[in-house]
């Protein structure tokens, strides 16, 4: 749930999603769900010439399972908060097991 919550804080920000097939799409993050499926608006494909089928596409839904990276706008990321959340997320399941 950590990254689902994290991505929700980035809605409205420009991101670049790079897929496992190397296709990279820049757009405004519209929504994200618990599978980390991502919806982008006003998209632009980074290497347009290689992917002519994307030319007429204005927004897209990307299935979370095909994502390799998401490049994020660094100023919008609170790294201290993220590290805290990551530490807490690890402690919870361990405590529940006892």
């Amino acid at each position: 749930m950590l990254f689902y919550s994290f991505f929700k804080t980035l809605v409205g920000q420009p991101v670049t999603v790079e897929l496992k097939n190397d296709l990279a799409i820049t757009g405004v993050l519209v929504s994200v769900d618990q599978f980390l499926n991502i919806k982008l608006d006003n998209i632009k494909v980074v290497d347009e010439e290689r992917y002519p089928h994307m030319l007429a596409v204005k927004n897209c839904f990307i299935r979370g399972s095909v994502v390799r990276y998401v490049q994020l706008p660094a100023p919008s990321v609170d790294t201290a908060l993220l590290q805290d959340a990551a530490r807490r997320e690890r402690q919870q399941p361990a405590a529940a097991r006892r």
């Binding site: 980390l36 660094a74 990321v77 993220l82 590290q83 959340a85 990551a86």
Partner: peptide, 24 residues
């Protein structure tokens, strides 16, 4: 080290049980 032909070096800011990560 990733599947395929990629490797990353960066500062670890967050991870989860799937090894999803945010690196800086």
């Amino acid at each position: 080290k990733l599947r395929g032909d990629r490797e990353l070096r960066g500062k670890l800011h967050a991870y989860d049980g799937h090894l999803n990560m945010v690196l800086g």
